[in-house]
Design a protein around this nucleic acid. Sequence first.
DNA 1: TTCATTGGTTGATATTGTCAACCAACAGCC
DNA 2: GGCTGTTGGTTGACAATATCAACCAATGAA
Lengths: 144, 144
Amino acid sequence: MPHQADIRQVLWQLAFQFKVSSKRAIRDYDLPLNGMHVRLLQMIARQPACTAQHIAAVTGRDKGQITRVIKELETMDLVTRTPNPEDRRSQLLALSQTGQGLMARIQEAEDEVTKTLLKGIPKKEVDAFIETGNRMLDNLREES
Amino acid sequence: MPHQADIRQVLWQLAFQFKVSSKRAIRDYDLPLNGMHVRLLQMIARQPACTAQHIAAVTGRDKGQITRVIKELETMDLVTRTPNPEDRRSQLLALSQTGQGLMARIQEAEDEVTKTLLKGIPKKEVDAFIETGNRMLDNLREES
DNA sequence: TTCATTGGTTGATATTGTCAACCAACAGCC
DNA sequence: GGCTGTTGGTTGACAATATCAACCAATGAA
């Protein structure tokens, strides 16, 4: 596969290939989850007092979609919902016992992908990449 | 929105935000197309003797999906299929007259997004970003 | 000539994304 | 206290995208 000169191609391809790799990793670990499940679990694991609203804001996804995925995670007993003392409209999300165990294995799988992704690329270069990427994100978000 | 330190987050977000922006641009230009349509049109425009196989290989998408989108593009009279003299199984894809006209407008829309994306980022940095991105892609593809 | 491979098509189904209506709780305001 | 606009979340309907497998005809190599 030749190298792409076009920033668009690079972006599309990176996201796509990365998704494919992650998906495969998840499946290799025999986890009964799809991509969205994984992403939300990660966010919930990271954020202490996580609400659906927070997830929607950070990911930019539709809140309806968020609601549905969370519901699935709940019926799978991976996350728990407790009423938010600060605001009776919302609920705080957290990983259940099972969820935490699963999360550890997900991390493993994803770390492996990340390791593959970054193989042979000096840390300095990776940092620069992330920095530039963040600036692009700022540009895109500003516009809206 | 705070800057992400995690390469995964950056990748996801970039791809997502970029997609959102492109979609909006397409719609602002009143083009009756969805994302896949646009991507395939671009590929066909770029590749002189383009076949479905070629598109599937480059994008990594399922060939069934490719077939379907092409069929739609054909019924919209945007692309033409002519038998491939080299191989009677396959067909060469090309933009129709209408397709070419549309393509010009798509380019405009997408160029605008790219411009927004890269605003204020020195060319040198963009080049480095692309280069690093390509290396990551090589890493991911090698693995499979 | 066989036979495995390749380019493409089709069907079925899962996943992800989008849009809009809706409800209850909130927050500011008079 | 009552309004009113906003916010967190839910739901329905539907479009777009992805995945998997079976299948066919042409190809190419043995």
